[in-house]
């Protein structure tokens, strides 16, 4: 049984425009998943459902076998999953340390240092950091929360190629080293190449593919 399960999930804005069409899938701890697909295919919608930001029109999403809606979506967001976004989504008036402390269940600085930020950088305003560093702060926030699932929406979309590789590698290490279930939504094949499992979202369906 996966840590996160999707059972016959459908999502639509109107019945004639299905975004997700009866998807069923299971996501396990210690693995990095990448969901590929063109813009508007429903990748982010699926991520929102997995993250408890929205609820499916049909079907169920289970965390450790229990339906999200029954457990409570806020509870799910607080204790089970961590988001990493393309635009980092850090609190701009806080330092990296403080951003990590928002969710941290452990010391923030060691996590930041492990992800390559110096002590000095950890205490600057986040907006003074590079894009790659900001994304590391976002990942550090996810790691320090101790939540078992990390959902990343185009996490390398704003980064150059080298930095994108480094961040993807960090996600991979996170999955392996910390036993997290990392689900990345991307349209980058380079990111997909480093994943344990790759899905392609097409016409509202999720199909496992080889890259």
């Amino acid at each position: 049984m996966g840590v996160l399960e999707v059972k016959n999930v459908s999502y639509y804005y109107s019945k004639d425009r299905m975004v997700l069409d009866g998807i069923s899938e299971s996501f396990e701890s210690g693995k990095m998943y990448v969901i590929l697909g063109p813009s508007g295919c429903g990748k982010t919608t699926l991520l929102s459902l997995l993250g408890g930001l929205d609820i499916p029109k049909e079907g169920q999403i289970l965390f450790e076998g229990k339906e999200l809606q029954k457990k409570g979506l806020e509870e799910h967001r607080r204790n089970h999953i961590s988001f990493v976004f393309q635009n980092y989504n850090l609190i701009d008036y806080m330092t990296p340390m403080e951003n990590v402390e928002l969710t941290a269940r452990q010391e923030a600085l060691p996590v930041l240092e492990k992800l390559g930020l110096s002590r000095d950088e950890a205490k600057r305003n986040v907006l003074q950091l590079s894009g790659g560093q900001q994304q590391r702060v976002a990942i550090a926030r996810a790691l320090a929360s101790g939540n078992p699932v990390i959902l990343a929406d185009e996490p390398t979309g704003n980064l150059d190629e080298d930095m994108a590789k480094e961040i993807t590698r960090t996600f991979q290490e996170t999955a392996k080293e910390y036993g997290k279930c990392v689900i990345i939504v991307s349209h980058s094949n380079e990111v997909a190449k480093q994943a344990d499992v790759v899905f392609e979202m097409k016409y509202g369906k999720l199909n496992q593919v080889e890259v």
Partner: peptide, 8 residues
């Protein structure tokens, strides 16, 4: 949005 995404 950030606060909501982290479960506040």
């Amino acid at each position: 949005g950030v606060y909501l995404s982290i479960g506040i």
